[in-house]
Structure formats: structure tokens, C-alpha cells
């Protein structure tokens, strides 16, 4: 069972928006999520949508926090709808404070001017869902800047429901397809839109995904330094957003078979 008793958790994170985006995105698919806190390792949120198409793994090391006091490892099971509501006004100027005694959890938003808003929610009892360990052979690797990827996704999301990622020896292209037409973004090292690119070993690879599952990434990418996309033929994609102070959001999305 998730949940814990008599723990002391108190940490402060520099950008409350990350939590807002991740918890709001997960609330689209889940009722409850377990926030794992560890005295040495920091914080981890790992969750899978109920259809088992998307896996989200957020790791924030202890060093990424302004303050971090956790006396023992614990899982704080949070009602996502309530948490997302509490954090919906979090801006880039807000720091996030999280406190818990094992019975309830408090989210605090501390603005630059020192205004503090606190939202206390009860922790919920929930059964921990087993999340499979994935074994993926992903040979194609592309690295780009977060804001570039975010802009591309925000346009693609409006254009269609299906995202085709095509890797050729020269470039990586993202195409959204709908009944009305398609939009394509091409990323390459020569154009400066890719920082690093490891193309397919032979020929080209095209894999399709449902764009709906890229919603969290579209938001989090805005605040990430770099985005690494890993692909393989007919395989899930692994997209890693490298965030401030070594925090990492890794997302796996299962492919479509047409």
C-alpha cells in the first residue's frame, strides 16, 4: 500500500511550474500518484497511464532542491486532481514548498515578493501499481533544445492526432497527420536544430505515436535545457527532458501499428 506514517518531509524547489505541468499532465490519466521521497536520492514520481501506453518517470536529485529534509524513505500518495488544482496558478516566479507528516501533504507557493500560499490535502490510501521495467533497443538518438521541441509539439498538437517520427541518415522529422493535411518539422545538425544526432544504422526508420500522450512533454520541454529523443523500429520512444539542477523527466510512449 502507498502511504506512510510519522515521517518528516520538507523540501523547497526553485520552479513550481515543473510540478504543476507534471501533476496536471498526470491528472489527465490518473486519480492518484505516489511521490517517492528518499533522504539521499531525492524525489521520484513514476507513473503509467491506465491504458499502459505512456510511462512518466520524473527524478529530482537531492542536490536540485534549495532545502531538503526527509527523515526516511516514504511514498506520499496524492490525489492528482486536488494537487493539480492547488498548483494551477504556479508561475515561473514561484518556488514550491512541500511538507508532509505522513497523514497530509502541504503544497506551498512562495512568490518572488515573498507572498506565500499554502494548500493542504489529505494523503490518500492507494494500492501501488506495478510498473514494468522496460527493455528497449533504441539505437537512434537525437538531441535538441527544449524550447525548439516545445514549439514544434505545440504546433503539431493543433494539426493532428498522430505523430510520425522519421529518422533518415541526415535528419529527424516530426509530422502530424490529420484528415485535413499534415505539418512537418525537420531537425538536423546542419540547420542547427539538432545538437547531436545518431542516425539509423541502415536506411530510414518511421514510427507513429498518438500525439495526445505528448501533452506533458509539450509543457515541460519549454523549461528544459535539452531534449533527447531515442527511437528504434516499431519501438516505444524514450524522450528525456533535462531540467534545472540535474532533474530529469523521462517519458516512454508506445508506438502505433497501422
Amino acid at each position: 500500500m502507498l502511504g506512510c506514517r510519522e515521517v518528516h518531509v520538507h523540501f523547497r524547489f526553485a520552479d513550481a511550474r515543473l510540478w504543476r505541468y507534471v501533476l496536471r499532465g498526470l491528472a489527465e490519466y490518473l486519480d492518484v500518484v505516489g511521490i517517492r521521497v528518499h533522504p539521499e536520492e531525492g524525489v521520484r514520481i513514476k507513473a503509467m497511464d491506465p491504458s499502459h501506453v505512456m510511462l512518466v518517470d520524473l527524478k529530482i536529485p537531492r542536490s536540485a532542491f534549495d532545502e531538503f529534509e526527509v527523515d526516511q524513505e516514504a511514498i506520499l500518495a496524492v490525489n492528482l486532481e486536488m494537487a493539480a488544482k492547488a498548483l494551477r496558478r504556479a508561475t515561473k516566479n514561484d518556488k514550491l514548498v512541500v511538507m508532509s507528516d505522513g497523514v497530509k501533504i502541504t503544497f506551498g507557493l512562495v512568490s518572488k515578493g515573498g507572498v506565500e500560499r499554502y494548500f493542504t490535502l489529505p494523503l490518500v490510501a492507494a494500492r501501488e501499481e506495478e510498473i514494468p521495467e522496460l527493455s528497449l533497443d533504441l539505437n537512434i538518438v537525437a538531441k535538441t533544445l527544449g524550447p525548439i521541441f516545445a514549439t514544434a509539439l505545440s504546433v503539431l498538437e493543433k494539426a493532428g492526432d498522430i505523430l510520425k517520427i522519421r529518422a533518415t541518415p541526415e535528419a529527424l522529422s516530426l509530422t502530424a497527420i490529420s484528415e485535413l493535411g499534415e505539418i512537418e518539422f525537420e531537425f538536423s545538425v546542419t540547420s542547427g536544430t539538432l545538437i547531436d544526432y545518431q542516425p539509423p544504422q541502415d536506411g530510414e526508420v518511421t514510427v507513429g505515436y498518438s500525439l495526445e500522450y505528448f501533452d506533458i512533454l509539450a509543457k515541460v520541454s519549454k523549461m528544459s535545457d535539452t531534449i533527447t529523443i531515442k527511437l528504434g523500429p516499431d519501438m516505444p520512444c524514450e524522450i528525456t527532458a533535462e531540467l534545472t539542477s540535474n532533474a530529469v523527466l523521462r517519458t516512454y510512449i508506445a508506438p502505433r501499428v497501422e
Binding site: M48, S51, H52, V53, M54, L55, P132, E133, L134, S135, L136, S210, M235, P236, Y252, A254, P255, R256, V257, E258
Partner: peptide
């Protein structure tokens, strides 16, 4: 279309392989 066309991550788990 999702039910027919989207695979599940379970198919790529260590256990499944």
C-alpha cells in the same frame, strides 16, 4: 482506432521478453 492501432508498453517489458 486506439484499441486497434496503439500497442501497450507491457509488450516491451523485461518480463514479456
Amino acid at each position: 482506432s486506439y484499441a486497434i492501432n496503439v500497442r501497450k508498453l507491457d509488450a516491451f517489458s523485461r518480463l514479456a521478453q
